[in-house]
Design a protein around this nucleic acid. Structure first.
Lengths: 169, 169
DNA sequence: GACATATATGTAGGCGCCTACCTATTTGAA
DNA sequence: TTCAAATAGGTAGGCGCCTACATATATGTC
């Protein structure tokens, strides 16, 4: 048996990461097979800019549920590739507003059918997996209600009680 | 709405990774709160060595479902920390057999109650999430049956049919 | 026995995220 | 108006995995 199927909290994290790697790896191979130079992490930012229009680093980070640092790093990669441009927001000099360049818009247009195929494949996969996405949602919600940290700490015996029990043995 | 809850194949990968980061981050914080110097990736290797005894890099990689390179890197980190020792397998000079050192065995003994608390927290979380682990199993199985790559490629229109349709516009 | 192929594990570099810390700008309270 | 606190996004370094490629050893065929 795959040991991670029987193990605890740390192993669930490892399992999620592993499946994530598997899926991302497959997606990356599709782009490569089509001769498209694309970084997986671009998808979230591009998709959001294409659908919602220009956005700041922080807005994208909130929407994507990742740190602003990740968005900033992705932004730099996208700017280097000429896909995204950014400027200081006129309304707030702390903000950086990201927009698709013309090349970026063309790339998105070119990739949209592919992303539709991704979507369809994901729906098919999800159906086969008995709605894994809904389970992921529930997991997300459960963690938002109470973190794993708090759960673990609540379960652990307090040092004082543990010590008073031991010497009787 | 959190956009990733509505998006496709690439976004499922991102979601899995994000939840994984969340869980791993919490686990890391528990060790830190207890003043224990521990790398999250050590868990899989240590747990396996403690339960199954000495093992080779490849055996651990198979059991943990990660690449031998990851195991090798983790092994190096563990050896540096004096937790694991390794030697060339007498029966096959290509193999490297990993074993827990005395310090390693003591660390595992010390951490076992903590790992039980992890397990219990994970069960609690999983129950709240309506058996997310079973869903993950099903997702795993579905991907093993047919990769996301194959699914996407099967769905995509072939280039020839796409091209013959376009010029009529 | 010779040698092609398979197997085991290492190195190098990269991916996509993170935390800690920092600087600059904006907001709100006194 | 002044200034403390909040907000925005950057740099630096790290985490835990990956692929590509390499070397050494074992196995199997001729």
């Amino acid at each position: 048996m795959d040991y991670t199927r029987g193990a605890g909290g740390a192993a669930i994290g490892a399992r999620l990461r592993r499946v994530s790697e598997w899926i991302d790896g497959d997606a990356t191979r599709v782009y490569a097979a089509l001769g498209i130079d694309f970084e997986q992490r671009w998808f979230g930012v591009l998709n959001q800019l294409a659908r919602q229009g220009p956005a700041s680093v922080g807005e994208l980070a909130s929407a994507l549920r990742i740190t602003h640092v990740s968005v900033s790093q992705t932004r730099q990669s996208l700017e280097k590739a000429g896909i995204v441009a950014s400027e200081t927001d006129p309304a707030d000099a702390r903000r950086r507003r990201l927009t698709l360049t013309e090349d970026g818009a063309r790339l998105v247009e070119r990739l949209t059918p592919l992303w539709r195929a991704f979507e369809e494949a994901a729906l098919e996969l999800n159906a086969e997996a008995g709605d894994a996405v809904a389970a992921l949602d529930r997991l997300d919600d459960a963690l938002a209600r109470k973190s794993l940290f708090d759960r673990i700490i609540a379960i652990m015996p307090s040092p004082a009680s543990g010590r008073s029990a031991a010497p009787t043995g």
